[in-house]
C-alpha cells in the first residue's frame, strides 16, 4: 500500500470543497447552504494542516485556527440574519429571498 502523502490529503480536501460548492450553488434551504459553507471551510483547514505537515512548521495550523474563528463568526451572524429574515418573511428558501433584487 502506498504511504499517505500530502497529495492524498489535498485530494480529500478538494472533494470536500467541491461538495460544499455544489451545496452552496444548488440547495434551496439557507440552513443547508450555510452548512455547505462550513464544509468548504473545513476543506481549506485540511489543506492548511496538510501543508503545515509538509513544510514541518506550525504556521498552517495557526492559520487554520484563525479560519475556525472566522467560521464561528460567520455561522453566528449568518444564522442571526436567517432568524431575522424568517421572522419577517416566514421562509428560508433562497429563491424567495429577493428583497434587494430589481
Amino acid at each position: 500500500m502506498v504511504p499517505i502523502t500530502t497529495f492524498h490529503y489535498l485530494v480529500v480536501a478538494a472533494a470536500l470543497f467541491v461538495l460544499g460548492v455544489i451545496g452552496v450553488l444548488t440547495r434551496r434551504n439557507v440552513v443547508i447552504v450555510l452548512m455547505s459553507i462550513e464544509l468548504i471551510l473545513n476543506a481549506v483547514n485540511l489543506n492548511l494542516v496538510a501543508f503545515s505537515r509538509m513544510w514541518g512548521n506550525l504556521h498552517g495550523q495557526v492559520f487554520s485556527i484563525f479560519v475556525t474563528v472566522d467560521a464561528a463568526a460567520e455561522a453566528a451572524v449568518g444564522l442571526g440574519i436567517l432568524i431575522a429574515f424568517f421572522r419577517n418573511k416566514e421562509t428560508i428558501n433562497v429563491d424567495e429571498i429577493d428583497l434587494l433584487k430589481w
Binding site: 470543497f17 467541491v18 460548492v21 455544489i22 452552496v24 450553488l25 444548488t26 440547495r27 434551496r28 434551504n29 428558501n93 433562497v94 429563491d95
Partner: peptide
Amino acid sequence: RQFNRMWPVGLAAACAL
C-alpha cells in the same frame, strides 16, 4: 423542491471547478 431554480447553472459551475 430541494434545489433552487438555477441549479443546472450551479452544478455546471461546480463541475467546472
